[in-house]
Amino acid sequence: MGFHVSRRGFLKGWLLLIGAVLAKGILDFMTSETQGTVPDKDIFIDTVQLAEGSVMLGQKKVVWLVRDEQGYYALDRRCTHLGCSVRWQEEQRQFICPCHNSRYDLRGNIISGPAPSRLVPVKLSRDKNGNLIADRKVVVDPGWRLTITG
């Protein structure tokens, strides 16, 4: 006879596995670092890999970074209706708000929905490590771009 597992052992194994997964999830939840408020700054790493016409969510998940033909720009993730976090929907190529279905295009302009105004473009800069930093406290012109040369 080869390898034998009793019914009890089998159940115990599953219970242990489920318990371990749950414990890991709860531990990750409890040790999340949040600064206690929605952060103002967001950070983007490895942005050179971002293709033209694509988007990237910041590590703090509060700002969308977009790259187009002219360069990079950052959009505050908060929907201008009631502040839910908009998601990027690749099939439709739109930012869609999960709360009341406001829709914005790649530039952040309103396509439809209860939102009263466009997504807010915010300041983007490059730190000494080459990472991009967005600051939601500083609003910029919609046509503003960060260009990276060399």
Partner: peptide, 25 residues
């Protein structure tokens, strides 16, 4: 652990954090 009671604006923001920043929030 992450909800902040009191002012509605602060409460709402803390839920945004739970939703988007906290692992499995």
């Amino acid at each position: 652990l992450f909800y902040q009671p009191g002012s509605p604006a602060v409460a709402y923001d803390s839920l945004t954090v739970i939703q988007d920043v906290v692992a499995f929030g």
